[in-house]
Computed example of a mutant assay.
Amino acid sequence: MNSVAPVTPVAPVTAESVVRHIAESFDGVHVVEHDGDTFCFYGPGGDVDIARTLPFATVVTGDHHEAVSRLDADGAYRLNIGLTKASYVERFGPAPTERDEDGVLVTDADYTARDVLMPHPFYASQYWVGVVNPSASTFDTVRPLLAGAYEFAVRKYDNRTARAER
């Protein structure tokens, strides 16, 4: 007689759990929330000028600024990660530069797809990627990308600080 092992349910990866992972995994993360979206900056001790610093990751929870990913569905969100050029090119090739009539970058990506790591619809030309509603498996895949984005943010912060001290 064949027996099938019971499937253990996996807790969904929610926007809140993604933000919690980022805040708890990396030192010096400064989290800013605005209109339901979350922006993660590196700034030890809260020392970050958010007007002049880009976040290294964001979690966008609705169609506040664009509707290309259809984030208006209940529970939909997109995790966005700013990669280094080398990391982006390794996964997707050269960053796109051509935009359609709505300003969306032209790629082969289906920006409405769920659980697929893809170039960011507006910021891929700056080496950003995104994934809408990642599964636990996909989130495990992007954890190293988050770590790389964080490390890049730390390097940029350290370089800015060193230049300011000269």
Rank of each mutant, 00 (worst) to 15 (best):
M1I: 15
S3H: 15
V4E: 15
A5S: 13
P6G: 12
V7R: 15
T8W: 14
T8E: 15
T8C: 13
A11E: 15
A11L: 12
E16P: 12
E16F: 15
S17K: 12
V18Y: 14
V18A: 15
V18M: 15
V19F: 14
I22K: 12
I22W: 13
I22Q: 12
S25H: 07
D27K: 13
G28L: 10
E33S: 15
H34G: 11
H34I: 08
D37N: 14
D37C: 09
T38G: 04
F39L: 11
Y42R: 10
Y42V: 08
G43I: 06
G46F: 11
V48H: 10
D49W: 10
I50W: 07
A51M: 06
A51Y: 05
A51K: 09
A51L: 08
R52G: 04
L54V: 06
L54G: 06
P55W: 09
P55C: 09
F56R: 02
A57H: 03
T58F: 08
V59G: 05
D63A: 00
H64C: 00
H64G: 01
H64D: 02
E66Q: 01
A67G: 06
A67M: 04
S69F: 00
R70Y: 00
D72T: 03
D72P: 01
D74W: 07
A76I: 01
I81Y: 01
I81N: 02
L83E: 07
T84V: 04
K85F: 08
S87F: 06
Y88A: 09
Y88S: 07
V89G: 07
E90C: 09
R91D: 10
F92G: 10
G93V: 08
P94A: 13
A95L: 11
P96N: 02
R99M: 04
R99V: 05
D100M: 06
D100N: 15
E101R: 11
D102T: 08
V104D: 08
V104W: 09
V104M: 10
L105T: 06
V106P: 02
T112R: 11
T112M: 03
A113V: 01
A113S: 05
R114Q: 07
D115G: 04
D115N: 13
M118D: 00
M118Q: 07
P119H: 05
P119A: 01
P121R: 00
P121E: 02
F122G: 03
Y123W: 07
S125E: 09
S125C: 08
S125Q: 12
Y127T: 05
Y127G: 00
W128D: 01
W128A: 01
V129I: 14
G130Q: 04
G130D: 09
V131S: 00
V131D: 00
V132E: 04
V132F: 03
V132N: 06
N133G: 05
P134A: 00
S137W: 01
F139W: 08
F139H: 02
D140M: 04
D140Q: 12
D140P: 06
V142Q: 03
P144V: 05
L145R: 01
A147R: 10
G148E: 13
A149C: 11
A149D: 07
A149H: 07
A149G: 10
Y150S: 03
E151H: 07
A153G: 02
A153K: 02
K156I: 11
Y157V: 08
D158P: 00
T161E: 12
R163H: 12
A164I: 03
A164C: 05
E165K: 13
